[in-house]
Simulated scan of single mutants.
Amino acid sequence: MTDPHPAASRGFSTSEFERRTDAAQKIMAQCGLDAMLLTTEPEVRYFTGFDTIFWLSPTRPWFVVVPSKGKPIAVIPEIGAPSMSLTWVTDIRTWLAPRPEDDGITLLTDTLHEVMPNDGTLGLPMGHETHVRMPAADFRRLQSGLDGISIADGTDVVRSLRMVKSEAEITKIARMCSIASSAFADLPNHIKAGDTERQAFAKFKIDLLQKGADDVPYLVGSSGPGGFTDVINRPTDRVIIEGDMLLLDTGSLYDGYSCDFDRNFAFGHASDAAKTAYDLAWRATEAGLQAARPGITTTELWATMGKVLEDGGCSGHQIGRMGHGLGMQVTEWPSLMAGDDTMIEADMVLTLEPGLAFGDGKMMLHEENIVIREGGAELLTRRAARDLPIIT
């Protein structure tokens, strides 16, 4: 089969980061923000290209300041200077960290006063799916040193930009979706009844890496007789037997961009209830695929899938939404749910994830990854099998 999503080039051109920064500065001006402070891995990477797993260490804070004009300024621990110097950022200010008595706060405060000499308003992401990554005591110290500089919510700046992807971003997500689709298609050749969940998941993870994934940071699911009741658990030593169902859900990475979708399998045979639930979730996903297009809201898309489930007698589930944005993180803005009401635009990348409860508290989930084009949804994943796959 010809791969519809061939290998994507790694990294981004300088012009990509220039475009992102210029767009952010335009939004900042509209919102009355004189600078933005970024403290989390995805926001720092989005504007600089700084890509390291050193973020897993909680010891050191990292800061990037986006001024009203010009390039971002990195205020980072000295250990990160060589890596940051490989990016398009040229103004890199460092301190020898960790230094608990003043872990970059004075340096950051001085930088903010330099780029905002007349005081003004500093934007800081404060909304849902954002956080401030520094010790609370350090944040209080930063606030006390800002003097005439006020802090306002800058969530809309990063949210509006990151929800709509560039073609370079879409290509990376598509490549990861293609790799994971191939691994899911090959999974019945690697696992069997008698494997433990841990063994089945390990085989899948190894195959993902061998097929080209850079990392598999998110791999969850479970098995159970005729179905499963937990969709976010780590694998256990439970032995999979005939009559079981297995769900695997992965957010694997290619060049810093993620897929996020699941597949369901039965072993030996499946109950009529499981087959019916699978069919209902598949049809709800199909309705979402047909409905997704620019100009409708996330709530309308959610309702389209929900109507199929309701018409099929769905008793609901406790997941809270039926999809979300996708990109550098396995879940991003927006949420496909009642009340979100985000207007869907071309070049958004979304997951469609209808789910339902059936039988004795069992669950069924379907998930596909799509990019929104002017004419509608374009699948990035290879569509799930029409009927519940049975591994014999």
Rank of each mutant, 00 (worst) to 15 (best):
W282C: 10
H366N: 09
D153N: 15
E353Y: 14
A35W: 01
L209F: 04
T196D: 03
S182W: 11
P67C: 05
D186M: 13
D237H: 07
T40I: 02
Y46R: 08
T381P: 02
I390H: 03
L208N: 02
G295Y: 06
R263C: 09
N233R: 13
P4L: 10
A8N: 05
D237L: 09
H324G: 02
S315I: 06
L380R: 05
I53M: 01
T285K: 12
G49V: 00
T59W: 00
A357L: 14
Q210N: 11
E16Y: 01
M28V: 01
E114Y: 11
R234K: 13
H113L: 14
L33E: 01
G194Y: 13
Q329N: 07
M343Q: 10
P334Y: 01
C314P: 00
F12I: 05
K71Y: 06
A281Y: 03
G306N: 11
R10A: 15
G376T: 08
G316I: 07
E345Y: 00
G243S: 03
E378N: 02
W55R: 05
S315R: 06
Q143I: 12
C31S: 14
E332L: 02
S178P: 03
A137H: 04
F265P: 06
V44K: 11
D262G: 09
I391T: 06
G325W: 00
T52M: 06
P294H: 03
F265L: 09
S83T: 08
P125C: 08
A185S: 14
G145L: 09
G123Y: 07
I206A: 08
L33S: 01
V89W: 04
V231S: 11
T59S: 00
R321C: 05
A266L: 10
D347S: 13
A202I: 05
L37F: 02
A7F: 05
G226I: 10
G148A: 15
D153M: 06
D22I: 11
G325I: 02
V330I: 05
I76L: 08
A273S: 15
V164S: 01
P100G: 13
D237W: 03
P135E: 05
G145F: 05
D387T: 08
G320P: 02
A291D: 10
L356P: 09
Q318W: 02
M176E: 15
L33D: 00
K26D: 15
V349E: 11
V44A: 09
D51E: 11
Q143K: 10
P217L: 05
G327K: 01
A291K: 09
A136N: 04
V89D: 11
A168M: 07
L86F: 09
C259E: 12
L107F: 14
G375I: 05
L112V: 14
Q143R: 12
L86T: 15
I105E: 11
P100N: 11
P235V: 03
D215R: 11
I79C: 09
T52G: 05
A152S: 13
F47C: 08
I319H: 09
L350F: 02
H131M: 07
D153F: 08
H190P: 01
G288Q: 09
V44C: 11
G376D: 04
Q329K: 10
I27N: 03
T52Q: 07
L326V: 01
A97T: 01
A152F: 05
T40M: 07
